[in-house]
Design a protein around this nucleic acid. Structure first.
Length: 890
RNA sequence: GGGAGUUUAGCUCAGCUGGUUCAGAGCAUCUGCCUUACAAGCAGAGGGUCGGGGGUUCGAACCCCUCAACUCCCA
């Protein structure tokens, strides 16, 4: 006996293993058309979150569909070494064990990092298997594995040789907790309540009689001040031009300078200029040739150049200095002030603008093709609204700071001679050769060269991902890269459009002269019911694996897709997953029903029953084909959620509620062979159609619904193609379902048992009118449908109102159901009056439209015809309603 | 400060080229059913000034202007 409810757990494990054993997901180049997706590599030590679930479900739907369509489908999985995030985790782990990173050598630290990576790496990939992801696992890559590492180094050397990479002192975003520079894109601005501190600086030579007050949110940096700036047009300060001010507490003299950059109405109109600790001040310092005095250590504590508060953290120092200034009489006041502060995406620490020597990649030339080819839709962003965002970013692109002061990552292949001369080469050995040959320094040994301490930004390896996974950098002409590149679709989150997508495009054009993918499908962010982003730190994200255990992978997949149009955030609600689970169950029970039938091989059904069965099959065939056309269209526009909805309705409403109910034999009755075979065929096609969305249950049913060869699978069977749609039968059937629904309603409101047959009379208009005759014929053709579903005898025709009947209106025609006792005459009268009123209003508005010459002249002819038909229908409806009301009044 | 997006039923969202696919789906709610596949179900029902205002048009949820609220990106 098959279980009454669908139990996914065992089934899922069983079939996933079966798929792996039979290598259905494996791809090697052949003569077929390739369809390729590279996974956005998750952090190697990460765990699956809801965002991954959505993202990977979409990728799996696309790849499974392509595979069924006979393409050579290749989904490449892998992980990212995520240098700063992983290093932070390793540092934390070491701290727990009582080890400080600073006590370790680079090699020792890396050993721990690899240990950590091996321990936790790939957890996320095994989680993806639970979801049913059909990746070619043999192709799993890691951004730090030797081959990919080498590709990164090659690219660095190449770009350096092309003059695109340079080293320079720049103001960078410094993460004092990670103790590394981060790129602009990794800084998240947050609005923070701060104190605006008003500080009085004594004017030199005034002997304590004259002061200038400035307002700052960073009083702890006054020791690094290089000047005080005022606007040259500011009358209040004209007498101070050319004078000097004295920094409180440390009594250092600084010039008072003028610059129109200073806003007169902010604060006091005076601005402290601190070139080392603010990007704007730095720019100002260059203009005015001011010295740069950096008073902060890399960890955010004050250094000895500050003279006071040395060794104190910047935030503690901020509090302390306010007190000191107050004591020294230099504090005028403090005000509450809201301002934006940059924080590190990876560590959350407040970013410190810091001047440092870093490596940069020039972006202006490189980014040009990446901009142009997105703008002209060579690469299509889905949805296209992201094009604007993309353009504004690409048009204002800054050079990319690619060095990071970390150990976990690809170490920058730059080697320094003792005099500081830099040599860029793949490794020390080649660097030495270069030195010897180019500089003719033959006495030089490897020992005389020291490698740069920094590693490369993680994105500097992931931007090569679509090429490097196929070894396209190392070996640019190999079979794989030539076959799979460019890939087809990329599915990722909009938040990394710039970090990653834009840079992959840049790299693609630079190294292969071609975009890395054709379409970029941008998913939304998964949020909780309160609209908050789901995150581990907030604890508002359900564990995806728990969800899978509870609802089944198919349930979770469909649940996520039900409400996720491209680019729109998904408000996640467990109800969605429940709906997905219920859908699985519905399919399961349809299967139970069909599976329980016995087939009558002998004589076929006769007469009415036989025609009903034949017509049911014919109707569903057309309904299925029509839906397939719809779904194909949805897929072509990446409307995956809509495609799923169509599948859902086709299976639940059309197949289960209608088709199966129509052909269902009586209790313990057999079904005839022809209908049975047709039904099994439908079921098979439906399973194939649903398979990309719900791989597990469809495989289970497909395997069981017919005898299968060992090693066969639905996942490599053709995706259903639409056949001929008979529109007439669809129209006829929809009339039947309308009638059924009305009859059921009448039964409900009048408490008529479903077992009691009720006659139906239709008034489609005059017998002399061919249109109305055809309309009646349309009701008659499939009348066995309503006969079977609503228990009514053959539909009769009438040209007038039937006494003692309830009436309904179906697509403009009137239906009458005579009943013995009308339950609620008053209610019926109220209802009919309401309906009459509405119809009169409707007729009048139609009349108005039609009497408007400009409408008749401008609107499309068929629209006008439709309007005329509406008028006729409304008129006859009004007549019928009036008649009905007269009858009721009697 | 600059740019983008969103606002449609109680909730989450569709609504594609302005017109019968035009006000729709799912969930939730209400009513009646444990009807021999499924109560994770069946059959029905109610629920909307399409954020406010103005305009263009024969015709607007859809185009334009304006105001408001929220979200995101960049400074």
């Amino acid at each position: 006996m098959i279980s009454k409810t669908y139990a996914p757990q065992e089934i899922e494990t069983k079939w996933y293993q079966y798929w792996l054993d039979n290598q259905f997901f494996k791809s090697t180049p052949d003569e077929r058309e390739p369809y390729t997706i590279v996974i956005p590599p998750p952090n190697v030590t990460g765990v699956l979150h809801m965002g991954h679930m959505l993202n990977n479900t979409i990728q799996d739907v696309l790849i499974r569909k392509a595979r069924m369509e006979g393409k050579n489908a290749c989904w490449v999985p892998g992980t990212d070494h995520a240098s700063i995030a992983t290093e932070a985790k390793v540092v934390a782990m070491l701290k727990e064990r009582g080890i400080n990173k600073t006590d370790l050598t680079r090699d020792e630290f890396l050993e721990y990092a690899w240990e950590w990576t091996h321990k936790y790496g790939g957890i996320i990939l095994s989680q993806l298997r639970k979801l049913g992801a059909s990746c070619d696992w043999d192709r799993t890559r890691f951004t730090m594995e030797p081959a990919l590492h080498d590709s990164v180094i090659d690219v660095f050397v190449d770009l350096y040789n092309k003059g695109q990479i340079y080293r320079g002192v720049r103001m960078v975003n410094w993460d004092p907790q990670g103790r590394t520079a981060v790129s602009d894109e990794e800084v998240i601005t947050k609005e923070i309540q701060q104190k605006l501190v008003y500080i009085r600086y004594e004017i030199a030579g005034s002997e304590g009689t004259e002061f200038i007050t400035i307002a700052t949110v960073r009083p702890e940096t006054i020791m690094a001040d290089a000047a005080i700036a005022v606007n040259p047009n500011d009358e209040r300060f004209k007498h101070l031009h050319g004078k000097k001010a004295i920094i409180p507490l440390i009594n250092r003299e600084i010039p008072i300078i003028t610059d129109t950059y200073v806003t007169m109405d902010f604060g006091t109109g005076g601005l402290k200029v601190t070139p080392a600790h603010d990007p704007n001040d730095y720019a100002l310092g260059i203009t005015h040739n001011l010295p740069v005095l950096d008073i902060l250590n890399d960890d955010g504590t004050l250094n000895e150049k500050a003279q006071i508060l040395v060794g104190i953290d910047r935030f503690a120092a901020r509090k302390a200095i306010i007190k000191l200034l107050d004591e020294s009489g230099n504090l005028e006041k403090t005000e509450e002030y809201k301002s934006n502060v940059g924080t590190s995406e990876r560590t959350g620490a407040v970013i410190e603008p810091k001047l440092s020597l870093q490596w940069f990649l020039k972006m202006d030339e490189l980014s040009k093709p990446a901009l142009a080819n997105v703008m002209d839709d060579t690469i299509q962003l889905v949805p296209p609204k992201f094009k604007n965002m993309y353009r504004s970013w690409m048009e204002n692109v800054h050079d990319w700071c690619i060095s990071r002061q970390l150990w976990w990552g690809q170490r920058i292949p730059a080697f320094y001679m003792q005099d500081g001369t830099v040599v860029v080469a793949k490794n020390k050995h080649e660097a030495l050769e270069k030195v010897q040959h180019e500089k003719l320094l033959f006495a030089m040994t490897e020992a005389d060269l020291t490698q740069d301490e920094d590693v490369l930004d993680t994105w500097f390896s992931s931007w090569l991902w679509p090429m490097s996974v196929f070894d396209g950098i190392k070996d640019p002409n190999n079979k794989d890269i030539n076959y799979y590149y460019p890939t087809n679709d990329l599915v990722t989150a909009p938040e990394i459009l710039f970090f990653w997508v834009a840079r992959m495009i840049i790299a693609g054009y630079e190294y292969r002269g071609e975009a890395p993918f054709k379409n970029v499908y941008l998913t939304g962010i998964v949020r909780d019911k309160q609209g908050r982003k789901m995150s581990k730190s907030l604890g508002n994200s359900p564990d995806p694996l728990d969800l899978i255990n509870q609802y089944g992978a198919d349930g979770v997949r469909t649940g996520m897709l039900f409400s996720s149009a491209a680019g729109n955030d998904l408000m996640f609600d467990e109800k969605l997953v429940e709906q997905g689970r219920n859908f699985s169950n519905k399919i399961w029970n349809a299967f139970r029903l069909v599976k329980g039938w016995t087939v009558n091989e002998g004589e076929k059904e006769e007469g009415n029953e036989k025609t009903k069965l034949e017509k049911s099959v014919k109707w569903f065939e057309s309904q299925l084909n029509a839906t397939l056309i719809q779904i194909e269209d949805d897929f072509s526009k990446f409307r995956i959620s809509d495609a799923l909805q169509a599948v859902y309705k086709l299976i639940w409403d059309d197949f289960c509620s209608r088709y199966l109910e129509l052909i269902k034999p009586g209790f313990e009755q057999p079904i005839d062979r022809v209908t049975y075979d047709a039904t099994i065929n439908f079921f098979e096609r439906l399973m194939a159609l649903a398979h990309p969305f719900m791989p597990f249950i469809t495989e289970e049913i497909w395997q069981d619904i017919r005898e299968r060869e060992l090693g066969d699978s639905i996942c490599i069977k053709p995706f259903p193609k639409a056949g001929i749609v008979n529109n007439q039968i669809l129209i006829d059937a929809s009339l039947q379902f309308e009638v059924v629904s009305h009859i059921r309603n009448i039964r409900n409101t009048n408490q008529i048992s479903p077992k009691e047959s009720v006659p139906v009379h239709m008034n489609t208009g005059s017998l002399d009118d061919p249109t109305s005759n055809e309309r009646f014929a349309s009701y008659k053709r499939l009348e066995s449908f309503s006969g079977s579903l609503a228990n009514i005898p053959p539909i009769q025709r009438t040209q007038s109102s039937i006494p003692n009947s309830v009436h309904f209106n179906s697509s403009g025609s009137m239906g009458y159901v005579p009943i013995k006792t009308l339950i609620n005459v008053e209610q019926e009268i109220v209802d009919k009056r309401k309906e009459l009123e509405y119809n009169i209003g409707f007729r009048d508005s139609t009349l108005k439209k039609l009497s408007n010459e400009r409408f008749v002249a401008n609107a499309k002819p068929d629209l006008v015809d439709r309007e005329r038909q509406k008028l006729v229908d409304a008129d006859s409806k009004i007549q019928a309603l009036e008649q009905r009301l007269r009858d009721l009044a009697m």
